[in-house]
């Protein structure tokens, strides 16, 4: 299914959970925060919350800043 991931259209496995998507992308869950359709997904919901077609997903991390 197609989703918008960090601003870009991308194919991801059908019916995947947030945790499943991070695994699919090779991203360590403890290093990132995730937003689905403008709402933060807390870590305790990574395995229960499923991503749907057309969802907009943001995966962010800390970078240097002032």
């Amino acid at each position: 299914m197609q989703v918008r991931l960090n601003g870009e259209l991308r194919e991801i496995p059908e019916g995947v959970t947030v945790g499943g998507l991070l695994g699919h992308l090779g991203v360590k869950a403890q290093r990132v925060a995730v937003e689905v359709n403008d709402t933060v997904v807390t870590k305790d919901r990574y395995e229960s919350q499923r991503i749907g077609p057309g969802d907009s997903i943001e995966i962010v991390a800390f970078v240097g800043g002032g």
């Binding site: 991931l5 960090n6 601003g7 992308l25 090779g26 991203v27 360590k28 290093r31 990132v32 925060a33 943001e58 995966i59 962010v60 991390a61 800390f62 970078v63 240097g64 800043g65 002032g66």
Partner: peptide
């Protein structure tokens, strides 16, 4: 620290 999109092509890099 700032919050930015993770570069999904470089997920293995030092944070």
């Amino acid at each position: 620290v700032a919050v930015r999109r993770l570069d999904l092509s470089k997920t293995g890099e030092a944070s």
